[in-house]
């Protein structure tokens, strides 16, 4: 494409990114507002962060959310990677179409439907609703995202490497562990991160499958936010936004460094 950077492009980028970032910026700024009235500035203060840390309900909800996210994203990564392997490598088997349909459907399914369906399943299985059912539901919808991420990497993967390992006497599992896994590892890691974030964020599905005693952070935020804007929620949002920002930026820096190192290695190998 022609790289003619014009004033039009500069303006649309500036306005576009302002639109994307201003609302969050305002949220962050006003989390340091001394006033209870969220739209009137009354001086700098960090008191809402203090109140947040003293709020038992938020802290325990945050703990539940973190626990759910770690467990469900880890199981989802294992299942999703297996599913990706089946999709790309297993060839034909009975029910393959149904299988790939079940992988893609949860991604486009409205959350209200997935939530309702899972809740009805848990009720007919007689499972007590709580942290456990939230984890089961999160594994199910996030494993599909993992398998899409991993299978896009598997498709471009050179199969002869694996075959070479098998020819040299590796068992299929060894070949997977020492050849395939290291190569698809970046995709598996980004799949895990995606599953983790989706689980942290999920409100609707959790709302359906959670029991009365298990509240996740998004559920807590949602019920507080329904009553209107509150400075405590602003403070909480600021903390979450900072965690995500630091995470995403460092992840991209690490991958940039890895790519640079890989290039340097290739250069060195070529020179030898």
């Amino acid at each position: 494409m022609n790289r003619r950077f014009s004033w039009f492009n500069a303006t649309s980028l500036t306005l576009g990114f302002a639109f994307l970032y201003l609302p969050m910026l305002i949220l962050v700024i006003y989390s340091f507002n001394a006033s209870k009235l969220v739209t009137v500035w009354a001086g700098f203060s960090t008191k809402w962060y203090g109140e947040l840390l003293g709020n038992e309900a938020f802290l325990s909800a945050a703990w539940v959310t973190l626990k759910v996210a770690v467990i469900s994203s880890t199981v989802a990564t294992v299942l999703g990677t297996m599913a990706a392997y089946v999709l790309v490598r297993a060839g034909r088997f009975t029910g393959r179409t149904l299988f790939s349909g079940m992988i893609y459907a949860p991604i486009v399914m409205p959350e209200v439907i997935t939530g309702l369906a899972m809740l009805l399943l848990f009720i007919s299985l007689g499972l007590d609703r709580g942290v456990f059912t939230i984890i089961l539901a999160h594994i199910t919808f996030t494993m599909c995202f993992v398998s899409v991420v991993v299978s896009s990497r598997l498709v471009t993967f050179d199969r002869s490497l694996e075959e070479a390992a098998l020819d040299l006497g590796c068992t299929p599992f060894d070949a997977f562990k020492s050849v395939t896994l290291p190569i698809i590892a970046p995709a598996v890691i980004s799949g895990w991160l995606l599953a983790f974030t989706l689980s942290l964020d999920d409100l609707v599905i959790s709302q359906f499958v959670a029991g009365p005693s298990s509240t996740t952070l998004p559920m807590k935020i949602f019920s507080a936010v329904r009553l209107g804007v509150s400075p405590e929620i602003n403070a909480l949002s600021t903390i979450l936004i900072s965690i995500v920002t630091v995470g995403v930026i460092s992840a991209s820096l690490i991958s940039k460094r890895n790519i640079a190192r890989q290039r340097a290695d290739e250069q060195k190998a070529l020179q030898q």
């Binding site: 609302p23 969050m24 949220l27 949602f222 936010v225 995500v244 995470g247 995403v248």
Partner: peptide
């Protein structure tokens, strides 16, 4: 990557 809920919430104010 930022919470969907928070992004929607930011518009209330």
């Amino acid at each position: 990557w930022t919470s969907f809920l928070i992004r929607v919430y930011s518009w209330i104010g």
